[in-house]
């Protein structure tokens, strides 16, 4: 998967989760947007909903189920889920069927 395609998948997941957020806290579709971390807009339920939406979209794109949601998603502010950019880079590493 190319980075641009991965970025679009993350943006699609943002579109899916934004209706749950107040206007002022909605996630911007930008590589710099924080997903996990103290300055992020999503709480734990928001992160779960976001990652499940992203799993669906990524699975469709790759043609195989993917698993993104794990325990570290909530706590690792330096891991692959910290921002839109890092998440897109993470998706690029996932194997295609």
């Amino acid at each position: 998967m190319r980075y641009e395609q991965a970025l679009q998948l993350v943006y699609d997941a943002i579109d899916a989760v934004n209706p749950q957020l107040p206007q002022a806290r909605r996630l911007a579709k930008s590589p710099a947007t924080i997903i996990v971390g103290p300055s992020g807009s999503l709480d734990s339920l928001g992160i779960v909903n976001f990652l499940i939406a992203l799993e669906e979209r990524t699975g469709d794109a790759l043609g195989t189920p993917v698993q993104l949601l794990d325990d570290t998603a909530f706590i690792d502010a330096s891991g692959p889920f910290r921002s839109v950019d890092s998440l897109a880079h993470h998706l690029v590493t996932l194997p295609r069927v």
Binding site: A16, V17, Q20, S44, V48, N49, I52, L69
Partner: peptide
């Protein structure tokens, strides 16, 4: 099938997806 998610149930005690 995308209305339900066992993963959401186990992770957040919500049987239905945001969609």
């Amino acid at each position: 099938p995308r209305a339900w998610s066992d993963k959401l149930w186990y992770a957040a005690k919500s049987p239905f997806t945001a969609a």
